[in-house]
């Protein structure tokens, strides 16, 4: 009888794989939601906020880290785990996290996805990746395989933690035995952050709608970008009958510079871009991603 009660207690204290999976999904939503918010405000504030795009790219993971660290400090769980009422405990002793484990958890939780995202971005853009980057990506593949194996073992109750990261840190997930003791200020802040969680879901839904609109919806007619005022000599030099502004001959392999809208020969614009990094007509900075091949039917 006592043994049966003890078994039931243990089973009730162990979260199911579905709650863990849901909490991980919520954690993974933070970065794209923040990026989407930055994009929105960035576009509204100033179109030429171009230089600070890098800052935005680095600001989102930093804010994500701060959010996760706050939750790990106050509730011994990540943002997503806290939302589903879970808590991280030391596997052997059942104690809560110490400072070092909090820091390590937040860092691994935030920057492993960040590094992987960077690697995949570079590979999809066909940039020259060095051998160590290839090996690092292979390591990520191995990690995901190990995680899948861990999840399976956890599902069949063979392992006490669901992820290699948790095994590495010596942690496991449990339901807290008593409600968290917090002061008023902490309670208010964490409640506001939980409201933010619903907002994240809304942003995801909005983003999906946004993408769907872009694919098949009706396009509002955008205002044409104003034409840059060129010096008089340049205006007079530009060809009148559709020739390439650089070689002044018939355009071969037409390529548009999406930053300025002018069309050049592929060879002319690429050689100029590699040397100067600017549009030949407007001097706006351009990169290879700004060149658009134009096909004639």
């Amino acid at each position: 009888m006592a043994e049966a009660a003890n078994v039931r207690q243990n089973l009730q204290n162990v979260p199911s794989i579905f709650e863990i999976s849901a909490s991980e999904t919520l954690d993974n939503l933070i970065y794209p939601a923040l990026s989407k918010i930055f994009d929105y405000f960035g576009l509204r504030l100033d179109f030429k906020l171009w230089g600070s795009l890098r800052i935005q790219e680095e600001l989102s993971p930093l804010l994500t880290w701060l959010l996760q660290y706050l939750y790990l400090r106050k509730r011994a769980s990540s943002f997503g785990e806290s939302f589903y009422g879970l808590q991280r405990t030391v596997t052997t002793t059942g104690d809560l996290l110490n400072r070092r484990q909090q820091f390590a958890s937040a860092t691994l939780l935030t920057f492993m996805p960040y590094v992987e995202r960077k690697l995949r971005t570079r590979i999809t853009r066909h940039e020259d990746t060095s051998p160590w980057e290839q090996r690092l990506l292979s390591a990520f593949h191995a990690f995901h395989a190990a995680k899948a194996a861990h999840t399976f073992f956890y599902l069949v109750k063979y392992a006490s933690n669901h992820s290699p990261i948790f095994r590495l840190l010596g942690l496991t997930l449990r339901y807290p035995s008593e409600p968290p003791k917090e002061d008023q200020w902490t309670y208010v802040v964490l409640k506001m952050l939980e409201v933010l969680a619903f907002f994240l879901q809304f942003v995801q839904w909005w983003y999906s709608n946004d993408q769907r609109r872009k694919v098949g919806g009706t396009l509002i007619n955008p205002e044409a970008m104003p034409r840059k005022q060129l010096p008089k000599e340049v205006q007079q030099s530009l060809p009148q009958r559709g020739e390439c502004p650089v070689c002044l001959l018939s355009i071969q392999t037409p390529t548009a510079c999406s930053v300025s809208g002018y069309v050049f020969c592929w060879k002319c614009i690429v050689s100029h871009m590699k040397e100067h990094g600017t549009c030949p007509v407007t001097h706006y900075p351009i990169s290879l991603d700004d060149l658009v091949r134009i096909y004639e039917t």
Partner: peptide, 19 residues
């Protein structure tokens, strides 16, 4: 300036002389 740092390949000889 157009013969130095503000050069653009769209300048032809006519534009250079006019400048």
């Amino acid at each position: 300036d157009i013969l130095q740092n503000r050069w653009s390949p769209t300048y032809d000889v006519s534009a250079i002389l006019t400048s």
